[in-house]
Amino acid sequence: MNFEQLKPEVSYIIAKKNFSTDQRLLSICELLEQHIDYYNWVGFYFRNGDKEELKLGPYVGEPTDHTIIPFGKGICGQVAVSNKNFVVPDVNAQDNYIACSITVKAEIVIPIFVNGENIGQIDIDSNTPDPFTEEDERFLEFVCKKVSEMIS
């Protein structure tokens, strides 16, 4: 499936009111990981209450020890501060990268906004060097917009 084919699937998952927020987020993770071959780890991080840190939400992929990430640390922590998309074509070239797995070669993180506030993000790791394009960014912005509508 390409991104345009996945959009209605994402909308369908979001619309499932009989499922909890976490169930719907996990379903989105599963959908993306199954249908985009270079999405090897897909997960959500959300602001942990009033703390200056992110807490891991639903995800699919290898287990991670990074369940809490302080603002500013790693790619996710930097996005929590900058409020901007962050595409990393080569994680080994990043000074402030938190390694989750030696197989990860690239990462993309897109923030989720509710009422103009950055409340979390989608984080995707790839075992493929430099796989992410502007199309990935636009598609993941769509996903984050749908998630924000579900949460708000």
Rank of each mutant, 00 (worst) to 15 (best):
D22Y: 03
A15S: 15
V42I: 04
N2Y: 02
V42N: 07
Q23P: 01
E9L: 10
N40A: 01
V42S: 05
V10K: 08
F3L: 00
N2E: 08
Q23W: 04
E4C: 03
K7D: 09
Y39I: 03
W41P: 00
E30I: 04
Q23G: 04
P8Y: 12
R47V: 15
Q23K: 14
F44P: 03
L6H: 08
G49D: 11
Y39T: 01
L31E: 01
L32S: 08
S27T: 06
E33N: 15
C29M: 11
Y12E: 13
R47M: 03
L31V: 01
N40Q: 11
F44I: 10
L32W: 02
C29G: 12
R47I: 15
S20Y: 08
R24T: 09
D22F: 04
L25F: 04
I28K: 13
S20G: 10
F19G: 00
R24V: 07
C29L: 05
R47C: 09
W41Y: 03
N40Y: 11
I13C: 01
M1S: 12
Q5F: 08
E30Q: 11
F44S: 06
N18E: 15
K16W: 09
Y38N: 02
G49T: 12
K17D: 14
Y45F: 12
I36L: 14
Y12H: 13
K7S: 06
I28A: 12
E9F: 02
V42R: 12
D22P: 00
D22H: 07
A15D: 14
T21L: 15
L32M: 09
L25W: 05
V42W: 01
F3H: 03
I36D: 06
W41M: 00
C29F: 04
S20M: 07
Y12R: 14
I13E: 05
K7F: 10
F19C: 10
Y39M: 00
V42T: 10
I28W: 11
N2D: 15
S11W: 05
K17Y: 13
Y45T: 00
E33G: 10
F3E: 09
S27I: 00
S11E: 15
Y12S: 13
F19K: 12
R47D: 02
L26A: 07
Y38Q: 00
Q5M: 14
M1D: 08
L6P: 09
F3D: 01
E30S: 13
A15E: 14
L32Y: 07
I14D: 06
G43Y: 08
R24W: 06
G43Q: 04
A15G: 03
